[in-house]
Amino acid sequence: MALSSLLNPNLFLVPSSLSPLHSPSTRSLAITCGPRDNRGPLQRGRTLSTEAILAVQALKRAALSGDGAVPSPAAAAAALGRLLKPDLLAALAELQRQGRWRLALVVFAAARRETWYTNPDFSLYAEMASAMARGAAAAEEIDALVAELLEEKEGSGGFSPSDDVWKLTRLVRVLIAAGRGEAVRDLYKRMKRGGCVGDEYLFRVLIRGLRRLGEGEAAGEVERDFDEWYEGGIITETLPV
């Protein structure tokens, strides 16, 4: 074949009537892309935004410039005042992970003043108490945290049957692991007063935990409540205070 014929632009053209693009039997195909790798989802609180990183660093610098424990209220407000909810919670989790529980308390207090924080969150209190216990906080400091929770709960209407039992159980387990029997007793009394009695698992955790902490009388009270009022997996009425 001559070179001139190879360069002829009309040599390999297909008539429009025979073109596959114009064939009535041709169907469009949807192309989907599979996963690009095997990485799992990002873990909440472990990937910090730039704002959260800067806030954590600012709190540490402010603490060093003061007494070395916590920054001044003005410095804390400057570091945390413009953070959005995800960044504030991420900074809180990061300080807890680093064992800087005193700084984490500053962030926790700031979070509780935000407009989106409308009801005490048992899981946030549980994580805070756990960080304090790991950091060898004094027993009185953990008890003070629980007292703040109880006061905050009373201010929002008190305990109720609609409270999140799973989160509450998490908090009870943390307090038992920290050896805070008195705080567990106070928490259970407020639960009973508000009609929040939990489920069978929470009762078991309370009974075993209180006994392990040497709180036999309180454990007996919880066990009597369980035997008297928990029938067939259903709480029949509010427990007596």
Results as ranks from 00 to 15, higher is better:
55 A>F: 02
71 P>S: 13
73 P>I: 05
70 V>L: 12
72 S>P: 13
72 S>K: 01
80 L>V: 04
71 P>A: 12
61 R>Y: 13
70 V>I: 10
71 P>E: 14
57 Q>I: 00
64 L>S: 14
57 Q>E: 15
62 A>N: 13
72 S>F: 04
58 A>E: 12
70 V>E: 14
68 G>Y: 03
72 S>V: 04
54 L>K: 07
80 L>F: 08
68 G>A: 10
67 D>W: 06
81 G>H: 00
61 R>K: 12
76 A>S: 15
75 A>H: 05
75 A>K: 06
80 L>Y: 00
79 A>L: 04
58 A>L: 00
55 A>L: 05
74 A>R: 05
77 A>Q: 13
62 A>D: 15
55 A>P: 09
59 L>A: 10
76 A>D: 12
58 A>Q: 08
67 D>L: 06
52 A>E: 07
78 A>H: 04
53 I>V: 02
59 L>E: 15
54 L>A: 09
61 R>Q: 14
75 A>E: 15
77 A>V: 05
55 A>T: 08
66 G>N: 13
60 K>N: 15
79 A>M: 00
55 A>W: 03
73 P>V: 00
69 A>L: 09
76 A>I: 00
59 L>W: 07
79 A>K: 05
78 A>N: 10
71 P>Q: 11
80 L>R: 07
66 G>Y: 08
70 V>F: 02
73 P>D: 13
60 K>W: 03
60 K>Y: 09
66 G>A: 13
60 K>R: 12
81 G>W: 07
53 I>S: 09
54 L>G: 02
71 P>K: 01
73 P>R: 07
75 A>R: 07
52 A>H: 00
71 P>Y: 03
61 R>N: 13
60 K>G: 13
54 L>I: 01
61 R>E: 14
66 G>Q: 12
61 R>M: 03
64 L>T: 13
68 G>W: 05
54 L>E: 09
57 Q>W: 04
54 L>R: 04
80 L>P: 10
67 D>G: 15
53 I>A: 02
74 A>W: 01
63 A>E: 12
54 L>D: 11
66 G>L: 12
81 G>V: 03
68 G>C: 06
72 S>Q: 06
70 V>C: 14
71 P>V: 03
57 Q>C: 01
78 A>E: 13
63 A>F: 05
62 A>G: 15
74 A>P: 10
59 L>P: 15
61 R>C: 12
58 A>S: 15
67 D>P: 09
61 R>H: 14
63 A>Y: 06
76 A>P: 14
79 A>W: 04
55 A>C: 05
59 L>M: 09
65 S>L: 05
62 A>L: 09
67 D>E: 13
81 G>Q: 03
72 S>G: 12
81 G>E: 10
73 P>Y: 04
53 I>Q: 11
65 S>M: 02
78 A>G: 01
60 K>T: 14
56 V>I: 08
63 A>S: 15
59 L>N: 10
67 D>Y: 07
75 A>W: 02
70 V>R: 15
60 K>F: 09
59 L>H: 12
63 A>T: 05
52 A>D: 07
65 S>P: 02
76 A>Y: 04
52 A>N: 06
78 A>C: 10
54 L>C: 09
81 G>P: 09
59 L>F: 11
74 A>F: 01
80 L>C: 01
59 L>D: 15
81 G>T: 01
53 I>M: 06
66 G>H: 07
